[in-house]
């Protein structure tokens, strides 16, 4: 594996107060440089808290985060040089124009006037914001505001860009534009860590994923490997008329060539299988003798992975 750029070790965060909340409960993570890395999990899983700690905005209860070798708790001001952040909410400076949002960000990070102006012009061009340069952030649509936030976050050429729920509240078209923008960052050598609870987004965009729930990482791998872990590339959900025949049917289905797994689901049986010609027909014929009502076919998704690991749906 290539060089590790974000190293999270034994991270814990307990929010104090009358009812303490353990938001992050022992997370270990290595993000390889140059990847787009996803934290996928339902609301309240601890994604934002993890990002807040990694970006020096929250103090961990235990554990450490190193960004490009710099400890974010011991050296927050210096770690920030390697970090770009787009938080969950819009944090554009409403007293400054679109161009000034980027320009002053460059100045905060030590560029002189000429460098900052050049960088601002290039980023406005790259993110197709040039014609709105003199507008104020309040006048931007959600998609444009999000693009400006990304442009500003990478203006100082950070090594890692953190995106917290980048597509929350975006219309489908803006979401795709945002995905393109994020994918283009790969070419600039920027590592991206993003959180999401949209499994399509995680699947489409990320090279590697950690599925996170209740402050813990359940599993970590490439999206393809995660989906393969389900144990088949086709899923047939069979709805059965009566429950009695099920056990016998389960055994007979297991014997069908190509079937890799059979499990009970409410109202029927789920068959996991490797795709091959004639497989669906064989499964349906076998099940038909035992009172098949209906069949739906799907392919394993990250949603399936999540449900198998937690027994819950990703979106509730």
């Amino acid at each position: 594996m290539s060089e590790t750029i974000v190293a999270i070790t034994g991270l814990r965060k307990v929010y104090g107060g009358k009812n303490p909340v353990t938001a992050v409960d022992g997370i270990d993570l290595r993000v390889p440089a140059g990847t787009i890395y996803g934290l996928l999990g339902p609301n309240g899983a601890g994604k934002t808290t993890t990002i807040s700690i990694a970006t020096t905005r929250a103090i961990p209860t235990a554990g450490s985060v190193r960004i490009a070798g710099v400890d974010v708790v011991a050296q927050p001001a210096l770690a920030r040089q390697s970090i770009g952040v787009v938080p969950q909410y819009n944090t554009l400076d409403r007293s400054c124009t679109v161009a000034e949002n980027i320009y002053f960000h460059c100045r905060y990070f030590g560029m002189n006037k000429g460098e900052a102006e050049g960088r601002t012009a290039r980023l406005l061009e790259q993110f197709r914001l040039s014609d709105r340069a003199k507008a104020y952030p309040q006048a931007l649509s959600g998609g444009l505001a999000q693009r400006l936030q990304i442009a500003r976050a990478i203006a100082h050429k950070p090594k890692v860009l953190f995106l917290d729920e980048p597509s929350a509240g975006l219309d489908p078209q803006s979401r795709i534009a945002m995905w393109d923008a994020v994918q283009a960052l790969r070419g600039e050598g920027i590592t991206v860590v993003l959180t999401t609870h949209y499994m399509e987004e995680a699947d489409e965009l990320c090279d590697r994923l950690a599925i996170i729930d209740h402050g813990k990482i359940l599993i970590e791998d490439t999206p393809a490997a995660l989906k393969a872990s389900v144990g088949g590339d086709k899923i047939y959900d069979l709805r059965m008329r009566d429950a009695d025949a099920r056990e016998k049917l389960e055994e007979r289905l297991r014997a069908v060539e190509g079937v890799t797994g059979v499990e009970a689901i409410p109202g029927g049986i789920r068959v996991l299988a490797r795709a091959q010609d004639g497989l669906l027909a064989r499964v349906v014929m076998t099940a038909n003798e035992c009172g098949l009502q209906d069949v739906t076919t799907t392919e394993p998704s990250l949603e399936t992975v999540f449900i198998r690991m937690t027994g819950r749906e990703l979106r509730e």
Partner: peptide, 16 residues
Amino acid sequence: GITREIDDRVMCPLPI
């Protein structure tokens, strides 16, 4: 307030 627009300035390379 709601927008937390101070965030970008807090994130500059400077002690808080």
